[in-house]
Write a protein that binds this DNA or RNA. Sequence first.
DNA 1: CGCCAGCTTGACGAGCTTCAAGGGTTGTGG
DNA 2: CCACAACCCTTGAAGCTCGTCAAGCTGGCG
Lengths: 247, 247
Amino acid sequence: MIKTKPVPAELNRLRDFGLRVLARRGPLADEEDRAVRAALAEMQGAAAGHELITEGQPLNRPCLLLEGWAVRQRVLSDGRRQIYTFLLPGDGIGLCARPDGVALQNTLALTPVTFAPMPLLNQRLQAQARTGLGEVAWDMLSLEEAFLTNQVMRLGRQSAYERLIHLLLEFHDRLKAKGAVEAGSFVMPFTQEVLSDALGLSTVHTNRVLQQLRRERLIETHAATVRLIDPALLAEIADYRTSPRLG
Amino acid sequence: MIKTKPVPAELNRLRDFGLRVLARRGPLADEEDRAVRAALAEMQGAAAGHELITEGQPLNRPCLLLEGWAVRQRVLSDGRRQIYTFLLPGDGIGLCARPDGVALQNTLALTPVTFAPMPLLNQRLQAQARTGLGEVAWDMLSLEEAFLTNQVMRLGRQSAYERLIHLLLEFHDRLKAKGAVEAGSFVMPFTQEVLSDALGLSTVHTNRVLQQLRRERLIETHAATVRLIDPALLAEIADYRTSPRLG
DNA sequence: CGCCAGCTTGACGAGCTTCAAGGGTTGTGG
DNA sequence: CCACAACCCTTGAAGCTCGTCAAGCTGGCG
């Protein structure tokens, strides 16, 4: 299930991306920089569908996601699935501020993914270190919490139409912060079924709402690429507010 | 808005309850015990409807809830409300493992509440102290996370019928762990509107589902008291599993 | 006694799900 | 290079779940 490492040029791009993400709060101290570079050299891949973390498993192998999308999800005994959060390139996987924490959801690769083990992330969280890397790790955790908060509001009190817009805006903002948005458009590399399991809808209905948004010229889609035509208008419709710390 | 302290006898009961909760992981060290007793002596009250924590506010005043119920909630700009979690007697209010954390939801007293400031809780979290109190504080945080996880599953993938049962079971288990369940029955001291805003339903529909559960003899209600007639059966219907750490 | 908040009931319709089938695209093996 | 399968998207029809509106009821409290 674990794939071979990517080709060198690609590898360098991913390493640099990782370095940029981890230095977001300012240049890392020499020691942290060395450790991070060493960890990034250990990057590995996994196929789409691979389960990266299993519910109940100790959270002692934090990683940095460098490429591809993943989700945290749970499945009811009758097969119904609920997606809790999406993990995008640059996000942490398996972070935990508690020494003996345990995963509450499964983490699943939606696409082929590349990630690097990054034990330093949990070390900094658990040491409450106020270093550059420590701040970044805490920001990651805080953001996860903010996204989950958004998710609850969407599921509990918004219509399908609002929910979808709200989630699209969240993707837009998160990817924009990572430099992966161009003229309002970005890639959503997964099926409408995934979207439905995140939004608590049937795939048929998700499809219809997407079509409505296209008809109303609020979004455009080409293959897996989405363009938000008027993000400000969308934000008003769905009562969306950008999360702080997304800088 | 802040009420006067309760009468002495009541005060002793609440103090002892607080001590019991905080010593759940074993007897506290002398120093912690002293600090906890001093903090419990500072207990205070607030009226139903009082906002204990406001969204965006720094989380630097952790408290222990000694009596009454509260919720964490958010309100959309058009007035729709979503309740995220319930806070029961013995739960922490405003806990945060991060030094400069900020509240993501409002915390609101559902009933008159009594609580004691307990700065030690956040201190232990942030110092990663593996003392008795430190473990209790981490358990509180982990449980909050587990309840929020339950909430997302309920809202996203369960029917109104399942949602309500699932939430009732959660109350049952949480209160049982605090010794507040007798023969399957416990007190839910709030209106059906509150229940609805937690479950993402209209009050009318919540009411109808409650009646269905009564008709099917799965629950009994008298005033604010609910009795779960067959918790095991209910758990199967709603795919409910007890959270670990609820001991 | 009367008021008010909360609970209950009915009627109706919108939103969403389900089932079923057709069409487009991609990958695969002959 | 084509045939075929698998997967995903799309569409239609039917119906159930749940929301909305409106009104009546009940119990607690001044």
